[in-house]
Simulated assay, not measured.
Amino acid sequence: MERAQRFVDALAKLEERGEVESLVSLFGEDAQVSNVASRRVFSGLEEVRQFWRDYKGTLAQVRSTFRNMIESGDRVALEWETQGTAHNGAAVSYEGVSIIEWDGDRILRFYAYFDPGLLGREMAHGTAERSEVPATTPA
């Protein structure tokens, strides 16, 4: 579970302090990242960096918690719930699963599965229960 925990710890640094480099440093030069809400695959370290900056910029406040972390060979599955506050003050709470493929100690591919329609409605209309994410300021 060491690789799964490294990812979770680096994601927490991004969400809490806006520190993107700890997360990007886990990815290989040719890594690919995406999710069901994106129409594109982000390839290479500069695009990986952009993907994670965009993720952090989507919500004013954000915090993910993990229910299950499953590691088998070079694959990790993370079941998570993310809570936060949109820039318009709307509470956001959504859940999903991320699949991470590793090549040794570097991430080769990251893909997140969740309901993008639900997230969009929550961001626009504040339909989630009020989140208890504390206010943070990016580093």
Rank of each mutant, 00 (worst) to 15 (best):
S22R: 13
Y113E: 02
R63H: 11
G28E: 04
T65H: 10
G96V: 14
P134Q: 07
A91C: 10
G89I: 09
S98V: 07
E2D: 11
E46K: 14
M69F: 03
D103F: 00
G96C: 10
A124M: 05
N88G: 05
S72M: 08
E71F: 06
G18C: 02
S98P: 12
Q61S: 10
F114K: 01
L119R: 15
I99Y: 10
E79I: 13
G44M: 03
H87W: 13
M123V: 04
F7V: 12
R75K: 15
F110N: 11
A10F: 08
W80Y: 15
G84K: 08
R106W: 00
T82M: 14
P116V: 08
Q5A: 13
Q50G: 01
F51L: 03
L14A: 12
I70P: 02
N35V: 03
G104R: 00
D103H: 06
G84L: 08
R49A: 01
I100M: 04
V97W: 02
G89K: 05
E16H: 15
R106S: 11
F110P: 05
V62N: 04
G117M: 09
D54R: 12
D74N: 15
E15S: 06
F27G: 07
H87S: 01
P138A: 14
N35A: 11
G104P: 01
F42E: 07
